[in-house]
């Protein structure tokens, strides 16, 4: 029996719910000396996992785009479609929560000179462009090639965004995990880890479900063509 993506996504949602609950009730508060808006700091527990999930989605978008463009893999096209939608949703979550947290903590929701913020937002806009653009066109090799090309070139921004906080720490905080300079409280780290795992499961489930949807759409189109031919 194959595992349905929807079931995996629901599992991820449950994990995200657990993360939320732990973040609000169990994770320690932060010091008022370190943060201007200590209550708002709890946005962190979904903001960071959604950024991580978005990066995963953009990575899958890249893989799908490459394999469609060079290998004409149908599976890869379905991955492109599903991961662009996943990247859009999680990217918007991250940008939304980030703007609000920025307003609370920095006094401004955005910083045009911060490379990481802007390249991440650009990736989110790219996925919006891909989702809307694809829906405006009939399916075909021209549509797929065009949007796969955008998906491939847009991905250049991903490693750039990752490196940006190591090279240009301007306003957005640098990495606090997986570095020797990180200083995250262990309980916070635990909740964050649960969040990261949950969002990973969530994004995988959604991408699986999305790929199945594209397969269904293609099947529907084939049936419609067959029906029209047999009606003649």
């Amino acid at each position: 029996m194959s595992i349905r993506g929807e079931a995996v996504a629901l599992l991820g949602l449950a994990g995200a719910g657990l993360t939320f609950w732990l973040g609000m009730t169990w994770a320690p508060s932060v010091s008022i000396d370190a943060f201007k808006a200590p209550e708002a700091q709890r946005i962190f527990y979904w903001h960071v996992p959604s950024a991580w999930a978005a990066m995963l989605a953009f990575g899958m978008l890249f893989v799908g785009s490459i394999f469609w463009f060079f290998k004409r893999s149908e599976w890869a096209w379905r991955l492109h479609v599903a991961s662009s939608e996943a990247g859009l949703a999680t990217g918007l979550m991250c940008v939304w929560s980030g703007c609000i947290w920025g307003a609370a903590e920095w006094g401004v929701p955005w910083d045009w000179t911060d490379i990481r913020l802007n390249t991440f937002a650009m990736l989110t806009l790219l996925s919006l462009y891909l989702v809307l653009g694809r829906r405006s066109q009939p399916d075909g090799v021209e549509t797929r090639d065009t949007f796969a090309a955008f998906g491939m070139y847009g991905f250049v921004l991903v490693p750039f965004t990752y490196i940006a906080t190591r090279l240009w720490q301007i306003r957005h905080p640098g990495p606090v995990v997986a570095t020797s300079e990180g200083s995250l409280n262990s309980d916070m780290g635990t909740v964050l880890l649960i969040g990261a795992i949950s969002f990973t499961v969530l994004i995988i489930g959604h991408v699986m479900a999305g790929m199945r949807l594209t397969k269904l759409e293609l099947r529907l189109e084939d049936l419609q063509n067959r029906y029209e031919e047999e009606s003649r």
Partner: peptide, 27 residues
Amino acid sequence: HATLRLSRPNAVMVRLLTPILILPWAL
């Protein structure tokens, strides 16, 4: 120009990708 192969090139919102250009301007 990159969207010219599409059946309906006018239907895609290329403007969605243009905010990135604010970044070099800001720099």
